[in-house]
Amino acid sequence: MSTKFTVKRLMLPHYFQKIGFTVFFLMLAGVLGGMVCYWCGAFGPESSSWPFFAWLSETYNTLWVRTALNIIGLLSLAFITFSREKVEDEMMDRLRLSTIGAVAAAYLILYITVSIVWSLCMTDGLMNYIAANGYEFGFYLRAEQLWLLYVIIFKLRVIIGNGRVPDERDNRSGEDANGRDIKVRTERRYGDEK
């Protein structure tokens, strides 16, 4: 029995995952750091860094910069998603498939819930606030966020699965199908022959 086509032939080497995580967290740190500094007034108009921050903010708000950052973010997620785990086997394949199913189910539940809440709770004032702040219906259900959710769920399941594996001990005993202990004599005495 041979399978000429396997998923792992299409996947990137494992080190691409580290590259993806590094880029992603650097971007996240940059965005969060900028937001925190802005809120703290570190780059306020009174500070000496204001000209630099003003330039940075102006540059960030240009279309090509935001597009480039989006593409880099998506690339980092792609590197994480499409790179091999340390050991690629059928359990990883099934884990990926079940995670896609879980994300699809979560998306459906969230979409239905938000649709209902949006319809029931929407007022003119709220709608104007949302429009003024650039949010639209389902902004948090974009493909990028679903992709990120997939990565988070998949990696968590891999980590939790690895955590369930106990330390390898020299397990010389076991249980039979009825749950009774079977002690297997494994120590070799002088003169024993296999």
Binding site: E85, V87, D89, M91, G161, R164, V165, P166, D170, N171
Partner: peptide, 18 residues
């Protein structure tokens, strides 16, 4: 051991344990 068996089968120790 689980590690040995995993190596022979070409899977992870996590898979053997599972």
């Amino acid at each position: 051991t689980q590690s040995d068996l995993a190596g022979k089968l070409g899977v992870s120790r996590q898979t053997v344990n599972a």
